Amino acid sequence: DEETLERIAKELKEKGWTLIVNGKLITDAREALKWLLEEEERR
């Protein structure tokens, strides 16, 4: 759910983690959240 996604995005940002999505590096939590939401919609 959205709360979980926001928590994940926040944790990613705090830890300075990066996500690699389709070979693209995502360092911004907002971008990561946007991607996660798009993935949820596809299901």
Score class of each variant (00 low, 15 high):
residue 38 E to L: 08
residue 26 I to M: 07
residue 26 I to P: 01
residue 42 R to I: 07
residue 28 D to G: 10
residue 41 E to T: 09
residue 36 L to K: 00
residue 32 A to L: 15
residue 9 A to E: 04
residue 25 L to Q: 08
residue 33 L to K: 00
residue 34 K to W: 06
residue 23 G to F: 11
residue 26 I to Y: 02
residue 24 K to H: 10
residue 36 L to D: 00
residue 11 E to P: 01
residue 4 T to S: 07
residue 15 K to I: 11
residue 21 V to W: 12
residue 22 N to P: 09
residue 32 A to S: 01
residue 4 T to C: 15
residue 7 R to Y: 04
residue 39 E to V: 08
residue 28 D to V: 12
residue 38 E to D: 07
residue 24 K to F: 11
residue 30 R to S: 05
residue 30 R to E: 09
residue 28 D to I: 14
residue 34 K to A: 07
residue 24 K to T: 07
residue 32 A to G: 02
residue 21 V to G: 01
residue 20 I to H: 00
residue 41 E to S: 09
residue 23 G to S: 03
residue 22 N to S: 05
residue 33 L to F: 05
residue 16 G to F: 15
residue 30 R to P: 02
residue 32 A to D: 00
residue 3 E to M: 13
residue 37 L to T: 05
residue 9 A to N: 05
residue 36 L to V: 03
residue 32 A to T: 05
residue 34 K to T: 02
residue 26 I to W: 10
residue 3 E to F: 12
residue 18 T to N: 08
residue 26 I to N: 01
residue 21 V to L: 11
residue 3 E to Q: 08
residue 20 I to S: 01
residue 34 K to N: 05
residue 29 A to S: 02
residue 42 R to L: 08
residue 12 L to M: 08
residue 18 T to Y: 12
residue 41 E to D: 06
residue 31 E to K: 09
residue 7 R to D: 03
residue 33 L to Q: 00
residue 16 G to L: 15
residue 30 R to G: 04
residue 28 D to L: 14
residue 17 W to I: 11
residue 1 D to V: 13
residue 15 K to Y: 14
residue 13 K to N: 11
residue 32 A to K: 03
residue 28 D to A: 14
residue 29 A to D: 01
residue 10 K to R: 10
residue 17 W to C: 15
residue 31 E to M: 03
residue 37 L to K: 07
residue 37 L to Y: 05
residue 42 R to M: 06
residue 40 E to R: 08
residue 39 E to L: 13
residue 33 L to R: 00
residue 16 G to I: 14
residue 20 I to R: 00
residue 23 G to R: 03
residue 41 E to Q: 12
residue 35 W to E: 01
residue 21 V to K: 02
residue 15 K to N: 11
residue 13 K to T: 12
residue 31 E to V: 06
residue 21 V to R: 00
residue 29 A to P: 12
residue 20 I to D: 02
residue 24 K to S: 05
residue 9 A to C: 15
residue 15 K to R: 08
residue 34 K to Y: 05
residue 5 L to M: 06
residue 5 L to P: 01
residue 20 I to P: 00
residue 37 L to A: 06
residue 35 W to L: 08
residue 6 E to I: 12
residue 24 K to Q: 08
residue 27 T to G: 06
residue 3 E to G: 12
residue 17 W to K: 02
residue 26 I to T: 01
residue 1 D to F: 15
residue 9 A to Q: 08
residue 19 L to N: 04
residue 43 R to N: 09
residue 40 E to P: 02
residue 39 E to W: 15
residue 16 G to H: 10
residue 23 G to N: 04
residue 18 T to H: 09
residue 2 E to Q: 09
residue 37 L to G: 03
residue 7 R to L: 10
residue 23 G to Q: 01
residue 2 E to C: 15
residue 29 A to G: 03
residue 4 T to E: 07
residue 28 D to K: 12
residue 21 V to C: 14
residue 6 E to T: 11
residue 24 K to V: 13
residue 2 E to V: 12
residue 39 E to N: 08
residue 12 L to A: 05
residue 36 L to P: 00
residue 10 K to T: 08
residue 34 K to G: 02
residue 14 E to I: 04
residue 36 L to Q: 00
residue 41 E to G: 10
residue 39 E to I: 13
residue 14 E to L: 07
residue 26 I to D: 00
residue 6 E to G: 09
residue 31 E to C: 03
residue 11 E to R: 09
residue 2 E to F: 13
residue 18 T to A: 12
residue 23 G to T: 05
residue 16 G to S: 04
residue 42 R to E: 01
residue 15 K to S: 06
residue 30 R to Q: 06
residue 29 A to M: 14
residue 41 E to F: 10
residue 21 V to F: 10
residue 12 L to P: 01
residue 39 E to K: 05
residue 38 E to H: 06
residue 1 D to H: 13
residue 40 E to A: 12
residue 7 R to T: 04
residue 23 G to K: 01
residue 19 L to E: 04
residue 6 E to L: 09
residue 13 K to E: 12
residue 12 L to Q: 01
residue 19 L to P: 08
residue 41 E to A: 13
residue 14 E to F: 05
residue 25 L to C: 12
residue 23 G to C: 15
residue 14 E to Q: 05
residue 29 A to H: 03
residue 40 E to L: 15
residue 19 L to Q: 04
residue 10 K to G: 03
residue 24 K to P: 02
residue 26 I to K: 00
residue 6 E to V: 10
residue 29 A to I: 14
residue 40 E to W: 15
residue 20 I to K: 00
residue 35 W to F: 10
residue 38 E to M: 11
residue 22 N to Y: 14
residue 20 I to L: 07
residue 28 D to S: 06
residue 16 G to E: 06
residue 27 T to I: 13
residue 30 R to M: 13
residue 30 R to W: 15
residue 4 T to A: 09
residue 26 I to F: 12
residue 28 D to M: 13
residue 21 V to M: 04
residue 25 L to H: 04
residue 6 E to D: 10
residue 9 A to K: 09
residue 28 D to N: 07
residue 5 L to V: 04
residue 29 A to L: 13
residue 5 L to Y: 07
residue 35 W to T: 02
residue 34 K to D: 05
residue 5 L to F: 09
residue 4 T to Y: 10
residue 2 E to D: 09
residue 42 R to G: 05
residue 15 K to W: 14
residue 34 K to P: 00
residue 13 K to L: 15
residue 5 L to R: 03
residue 7 R to S: 07
residue 34 K to E: 10
residue 15 K to D: 10
residue 36 L to E: 00
residue 36 L to W: 08
residue 1 D to E: 10
residue 41 E to V: 11
residue 1 D to M: 15
residue 38 E to R: 05
residue 32 A to E: 02
residue 12 L to F: 08
residue 43 R to Y: 10
residue 31 E to Y: 01
residue 22 N to T: 10
residue 30 R to D: 04
residue 23 G to D: 05
residue 6 E to P: 03
residue 22 N to Q: 03
residue 11 E to T: 09
residue 33 L to H: 00
residue 23 G to V: 12
residue 17 W to R: 01
residue 9 A to M: 14
residue 5 L to E: 04
residue 18 T to M: 12
residue 25 L to E: 08
residue 26 I to A: 03
residue 1 D to T: 12
residue 7 R to W: 11
residue 24 K to Y: 09
residue 12 L to S: 03
residue 14 E to T: 10
residue 28 D to F: 14
residue 36 L to G: 00
residue 31 E to A: 05
residue 12 L to V: 08
residue 8 I to C: 15
residue 8 I to M: 06
residue 7 R to C: 15
residue 16 G to T: 04
residue 40 E to K: 06
residue 21 V to Q: 00
residue 4 T to R: 13
residue 36 L to H: 00
residue 4 T to H: 06
residue 9 A to T: 05
residue 40 E to I: 15
residue 24 K to L: 10
residue 2 E to T: 11
residue 22 N to M: 14
residue 20 I to T: 02
residue 22 N to H: 02
residue 35 W to S: 04
residue 15 K to F: 13
residue 27 T to W: 11
residue 29 A to R: 01
residue 34 K to V: 04
residue 19 L to G: 06
residue 38 E to T: 03
residue 36 L to R: 00
residue 31 E to L: 07
residue 1 D to I: 15
residue 37 L to W: 08
residue 11 E to V: 12
residue 25 L to F: 09
residue 34 K to C: 14
residue 3 E to I: 14
residue 10 K to D: 02
residue 10 K to E: 07
residue 3 E to T: 09
residue 23 G to L: 13
residue 5 L to C: 13
residue 4 T to G: 03
residue 40 E to Y: 15
residue 10 K to P: 01
residue 8 I to N: 01
residue 5 L to T: 02
residue 35 W to C: 14
residue 6 E to N: 09
residue 12 L to G: 02
residue 32 A to R: 00
residue 26 I to Q: 00
residue 38 E to P: 00
residue 31 E to H: 03
residue 5 L to I: 08
residue 25 L to D: 01
residue 17 W to H: 04
residue 9 A to R: 10
residue 23 G to A: 11
residue 13 K to I: 13
residue 35 W to I: 07
residue 21 V to T: 01
residue 25 L to K: 03
residue 27 T to H: 13
residue 25 L to Y: 06
residue 21 V to Y: 05
residue 37 L to F: 12
residue 29 A to F: 14
residue 14 E to H: 02
residue 39 E to F: 12
residue 8 I to D: 01
residue 40 E to F: 15
residue 40 E to N: 10
residue 21 V to P: 00
residue 37 L to V: 09
residue 12 L to W: 11
residue 25 L to W: 11
residue 21 V to I: 13
residue 11 E to I: 15
residue 22 N to E: 10
residue 15 K to T: 05
residue 35 W to N: 02
residue 36 L to F: 08
residue 30 R to H: 07
residue 28 D to T: 06
residue 39 E to G: 03
residue 22 N to I: 15
residue 12 L to N: 02
residue 8 I to H: 02
residue 41 E to W: 14
residue 2 E to K: 11
residue 27 T to Q: 09
residue 13 K to G: 14
residue 27 T to S: 06
residue 13 K to H: 12
residue 32 A to Q: 04
residue 9 A to V: 14
residue 24 K to N: 05
residue 21 V to N: 01
residue 7 R to Q: 06
residue 39 E to H: 09
residue 19 L to I: 13
residue 26 I to L: 08
residue 5 L to W: 12
residue 8 I to K: 01
residue 19 L to V: 11
residue 13 K to P: 03
residue 11 E to N: 09
residue 20 I to W: 05
residue 25 L to V: 09
residue 2 E to G: 06
residue 32 A to M: 13
residue 8 I to G: 01
residue 8 I to W: 10
residue 16 G to W: 12
residue 37 L to P: 00
residue 6 E to M: 09
residue 37 L to Q: 09
residue 10 K to S: 09
residue 6 E to S: 09
residue 42 R to T: 04
residue 35 W to M: 07
residue 8 I to Y: 03
residue 26 I to H: 01
residue 29 A to T: 05
residue 29 A to E: 03
residue 36 L to N: 00
residue 13 K to A: 13
residue 2 E to S: 11
residue 35 W to A: 06
residue 25 L to G: 00
residue 6 E to C: 15
residue 14 E to V: 02
residue 43 R to D: 06
residue 38 E to G: 05
residue 38 E to Q: 07
residue 18 T to V: 14
residue 42 R to Q: 07
residue 30 R to A: 12
residue 25 L to I: 10
residue 17 W to D: 02
residue 15 K to V: 04
residue 24 K to R: 08
residue 18 T to D: 12
residue 33 L to M: 03
residue 13 K to W: 12
residue 6 E to H: 11
residue 12 L to T: 03
residue 4 T to K: 07
residue 21 V to A: 04
residue 10 K to H: 08
residue 17 W to M: 06
residue 11 E to W: 15
residue 15 K to A: 07
residue 36 L to C: 15
residue 25 L to N: 04
residue 9 A to G: 04
residue 10 K to Y: 01
residue 43 R to H: 08
